[in-house]
Design a protein around this nucleic acid. Structure first.
Length: 503
RNA sequence: GGUCCCGUGGUAGAGUGGCUAUACAGAGCUCUGCAAAAGCUCGUACAUCGGUUCGAAUCCGGUCGGGACCUCCA
């Protein structure tokens, strides 16, 4: 099915097709900086990335080569891993004298948490082509810097190397993902000019000089002053340029995802680097200078109508929510209830409502499995869908998950399980299973049989006898007794069903 | 200061010139000894003030409110 996506580069909803004409979508997603556990705002961005790649597979029928970077070197990770840091945890082991090793221990701790969070959030490790760490691609970053220098857009100052935005902007368009008012740039409220000594405030760092005690790698740099080694570490944008072209090249690849805040400066600078490096490389004759054909950005979320912030005490990680008894998959589905390009208002009531809706559909799935007398179902092509075709169409239309869910509920409402025969139920299961390859919030294995203690069985059996004798008082008494020990009983026509009471 | 987005029923959230999305919650009904589940039915919302129009939640302008970006934040 033809997929349409809003592209920040063109500012319009465009029909998607892979740049190289193949059936493989090459996609790069900005991942986390691993200095802390990811909060739900971060998770929304990763969910968008997962949604894109799942829609590409299931609705678009493509194969996907999906890369999500893990940033394991930056100011925060360096500060957190520094000797004597208050953020160093016992779980990270003992600190050594080697700053790079400390950085690696610190970041691998949070990388592990991150991978666990992804799994809990319904994002499958199997779907990744790679989750590269920045520090594993230092030499590829040297190459990018070298090429940018060859193109004439890099200069060194006090041991740091900067990207010369002014020169670049003379030759190429700068401000493609975000309208930049360079006239007013210097009046900006958050310029902290003392941090860098660069020629222009709009220049950004490619290689940041080492400060005492910091982990550092050696960049070999040659200019009019000769060749020297610059101990330092990569600038923020550099890793993404280097890793995306290393793992997804040749450029352009197809889709780049991230949060709206990354449009500028991060993504703007990233694509400028790729473009600049291309002009300094040996194969500049090749036609493409573009990094990615499509750029997809998700809006932010608010919490109870307010910006999420630590000072407002509304700052949540998935782990915080899990401690309050909230299933991460309910959070996933709640987020999918809002379009990715609109601000999503995360509320506790909203998640509870979503949990109820999710459970209702899950019960429907289990009812279908009972009817179909099998849970052995496979994914079908999105083009083969019948009753759920409108769901797939909504997903193909710029990932319109709220509309897709509405269509799903409508379709389910039109097809009650109790009116289906086995083959109808099987067909519906196949369609739901296929759609769930995108949503990934429902379970298609048969309803779990519950271990019922003998004592409970006995009480329930006595109650069934009492009912048969129309001894309603005794029956109700036994129901209360069961409730007291945590079990509910649901009467059917020729039997009853026992379930543990919800906590 | 500059650039830009948004304000919809109790809640969440689509729609974007005429045809009351959808879900959760709520009410009524069917079924049922009762209960639960399931199914059916219902509620007529679009910040505010003006304007354009036969007709506006939808277009235009003002006001109020929330939010984003403007160099390391998803």
């Amino acid at each position: 099915m033809q997929i349409r996506l809003f592209n920040t580069l063109t500012r319009s909803i465009d029909e998607f097709s892979p740049a190289d004409g193949s059936n493989i979508v090459r996609m790069y997603s900005c991942g986390p900086t691993v200095y802390d556990a990811a909060h739900i705002g971060n998770m929304r961005a990763f969910l968008l990335a997962d949604l894109v790649q799942r829609v590409m597979r299931t609705v678009g029928g493509y194969g996907v080569r999906w890369v999500m970077n893990i940033t394991d070197v930056d100011d925060k990770t360096i500060a957190g891993s520094a000797l004597g840091s208050s953020r160093w945890l016992a779980a990270m082991g003992k600190q050594s004298d080697d700053a790079i090793e400390n950085l690696a221990r610190f970041t691998s701790h949070y990388t592990k948490l991150f991978v666990e969070d992804l799994t809990a959030f319904g994002i499958s490790s199997d779907h990744f082509y790679d989750q590269p760490r920045a520090t594993a691609f230092i030499s590829q970053m040297y190459d990018v810097i070298w090429e940018i220098q060859q193109a004439g857009y890099a200069y060194e100052r006090d041991g740091s190397v900067y990207f010369d935005v002014t020169s670049y902007a003379r030759d190429h368009q700068y401000g493609r993902l975000f309208t930049i008012d360079r006239e007013n740039f210097q009046e900006g409220v958050r310029i902290d000019a003392d941090e860098y000594d660069r020629e222009s405030v709009s220049d950004f760092v490619l290689w940041k000089a080492q400060k005492p005690g910091e982990p550092a790698w050696e960049l070999q740099w040659t200019d009019e002053a000769g060749m020297r080694h610059l101990p330092g570490r990569p600038g923020w944008h550099l890793e993404c340029s280097a890793m995306s072209r290393s793992l997804l090249g040749p450029l352009p690849f197809d889709i780049h995802t991230g949060g709206v805040d990354l449009r500028f400066p991060h993504h703007e600078d990233e694509l400028a680097q790729c473009c600049a490096a291309h002009y300094g490389s040996d194969d500049r004759a090749t036609a493409f200078t573009e990094q990615s054909m499509v750029w997809v950005h998700n809006e932010f979320l608010e919490v109870e109508g307010k910006k999420m912030s630590k000072s407002l005490n509304n700052f949540f990680t998935l782990r915080d929510l899990a401690q309050q008894g909230i299933d991460p998959l309910d959070v996933r589905m709640a987020m999918l209830g809002a379009h990715y390009r609109s601000v999503y208002n995360f509320t506790m009531d909203g998640v509870r409502a979503t949990a109820a809706a999710r459970r209702r559909v899950q019960d429907y799935v289990w009812d279908l499995i009972d009817r179909a007398q099998t849970s052995d179902v496979r994914e079908t092509s999105a083009d083969e869908l019948t009753v759920l075709a409108p769901v797939a169409r909504a997903l193909a239309d710029d990932l319109h998950t709220p509309k897709a869910l509405a269509e799903l509920y409508t379709a389910i409402g039109n097809a009650p399980a109790e009116k289906m025969d086995a083959s109808q139920a099987r067909q519906m299961l196949v369609e739901l299973y296929t759609i769930n390859q995108v949503f990934n919030v429902w379970n298609f294995t048969a309803r779990k049989s519950i271990d019922v203690p003998q004592q409970v069985r006995d009480l329930a059996e006595s109650r069934w006898q009492a009912r048969a004798q129309k001894n309603w008082a005794e029956s109700d008494r036994l129901r209360d007794e069961l409730a007291n020990i945590g079990w509910s009983v649901k009467d059917g026509k020729d039997g009853y069903e026992l379930k543990p009471l919800e906590q």
